[in-house]
């Protein structure tokens, strides 16, 4: 474990917590893409499927973190699609998720480290996570604005994989560890946030709200 991965995971936890708090406190999921949250839930379930296959005692933090990610993302989807369904902005959350899921699944079958079920599910999860934020970014471009708290959520969510890139550089240099598929997907994922990062740093940090077109 290195500082980059530690802060990456903390940033990811923070993002999940910020979104849950926003929805719970405001009792509204306005401005939040339910599709992105569904895609994240699918990512966690397919990536941590080993938790279900052979139950292991929660002896280390990694198992606990995996369970937190899965339960928090499923609970977030429950809040969006059931509890606060009336506030879900379905009209603007209109990006076709199938256009993300099918290519990710196809690519996972073509480009993977090992052609076995668990590995293909993991690869699918990595590819899907790289593009899972697109419905959320699409929704913001349709509504033309993002609530400040949602911007903080996006910043934490984007920073998590950016920090993982530093972690991969660190591990390549000191542990000669390489996970090409995760690295390529992680770079693509972080690039998708660049536009938002620019808006966040030039606007939200100064207390302004993000309004598109910038």
């Amino acid at each position: 474990m290195n500082i980059f991965r530690l802060f990456g995971d903390l940033s990811h936890l923070a993002a999940i917590a910020i979104l849950l708090l926003k929805i719970w406190k405001t009792r509204s999921c306005a401005g939040v893409s339910g599709k992105t949250q569904l895609l994240f839930a699918v990512c966690f379930i397919t990536r941590y499927i080993d938790l279900f296959l052979h139950f292991v005692s929660l002896y280390n933090t990694e198992k606990v973190m995996k369970l937190i990610y899965i339960s928090a993302s499923v609970f977030t989807c429950y809040l969006i699609f059931f509890k606060f369904k009336a506030t879900y902005d379905g009209n603007h959350d209109s990006m076709r998720a199938e256009f993300l899921i099918v290519p990710a699944a196809g690519l996972a079958c073509l480009i993977n480290t090992k052609f076995d079920a668990i590995e293909i599910l993991w690869t699918f999860s990595i590819y899907l996570e790289a593009v899972a934020i697109l419905p959320q970014l699409f929704l913001i471009s349709k509504t033309g604005e993002a609530e400040t708290i949602t911007s903080h959520y996006l910043f934490a969510q984007g920073s998590y994989r950016a920090l993982y890139i530093l972690n991969w550089i660190y591990r390549y240099h000191y542990e000669s560890h390489v996970d090409t598929i995760a690295i390529v997907a992680g770079v693509v994922q972080t690039i998708l946030y660049c536009d938002f990062f620019y808006l966040y740093i030039t606007k939200v940090v100064k207390g302004q709200k993000i309004v598109l077109p910038a």
Partner: peptide
Amino acid sequence: ASDNAVHDEL
């Protein structure tokens, strides 16, 4: 550096 098959990250 070999591409490792064991994914030890979240």
